[in-house]
Computed example of a mutant assay.
Amino acid sequence: MAMERVPMTTEGFRRLEEELHRLKSEERPRIIQAISEARAHGDLSENAEYHAAKEAQGLNEAKVAELEDKLSRADVIDVSTLSGDTVKFGATVKLVDEDTDEEVTYKIVGDLEANLRDGKISISSPIARALIGKSKGDSAEVTTPKGARSFEILNIDWK
């Protein structure tokens, strides 16, 4: 079975790499140190510090494995090389809500990078799915938890 590729921007890939490096070069040694200090306190069965450090080690190693997996499956897309008149992965899309006239700008990114506070929405989100393939001036109907909303695409950018 082929591994599913995970689309992500160059920036998102770099952020995951930095986090992986931190977990391996800072967290791992710190936890190993904590385990050996706790071990020095004697009886391991009663030793809360030892058990906490071992648990932290397990969690850290699980995070390392998860990040390595995501990075190995990353399909890195350099957004600066993209262009075009239709919405696709990596596009920054300026919209206006046709009911409220409220303007919003979203960048369409991979699932792992999505962060609504930064205006980054996942390629698999309902809004992104409604926008994909559309052009400037088109309307997109999106079903949200608050009901159907209609957006007009004001601009598509590749910065």
Rank of each mutant, 00 (worst) to 15 (best):
E103T: 11
T10D: 05
E19P: 09
L44Q: 14
R129I: 10
K63S: 06
G12H: 09
K88F: 04
A140W: 02
R117T: 07
G110Q: 03
I127N: 03
M3G: 14
T92A: 00
L131W: 12
R15F: 08
I153F: 08
T144N: 09
R117V: 13
S139E: 10
I35Q: 04
E17I: 02
D85R: 09
P29Q: 02
E141W: 05
K88H: 14
M1S: 12
R73M: 11
K24Q: 12
K136N: 08
A40E: 06
V79I: 15
K134P: 13
P29R: 07
S80H: 15
N60I: 02
G137T: 09
T81C: 06
A148S: 15
P126I: 05
I32E: 10
A56V: 10
K159A: 06
E4F: 03
I123S: 05
R22F: 12
K88W: 03
D111Y: 09
I35E: 00
E103K: 08
V96L: 09
R28M: 11
I123N: 08
H21S: 15
H51V: 00
V104C: 02
E61V: 02
A91K: 11
I32Y: 06
L154W: 06
I108P: 02
R73H: 13
L59D: 01
P145Q: 14
S125W: 03
P145T: 07
S25P: 04
L59S: 07
K24C: 04
L16S: 07
N47R: 00
D101A: 10
D85V: 01
A65Y: 04
V93C: 05
I156E: 04
G58T: 10
S124A: 03
V6I: 15
I31Q: 00
D111T: 11
H41A: 08
S45Q: 05
R117E: 13
T81F: 09
A128R: 13
S36D: 08
S80L: 12
D99I: 00
K24G: 05
A38T: 00
L67D: 09
I121T: 07
G58D: 03
V93M: 05
E68T: 03
A62V: 00
H51S: 12
E11Y: 07
T100N: 09
F89L: 03
T92F: 00
L95A: 01
E26F: 10
V142S: 07
A128W: 05
S72G: 15
Y50F: 15
H21F: 06
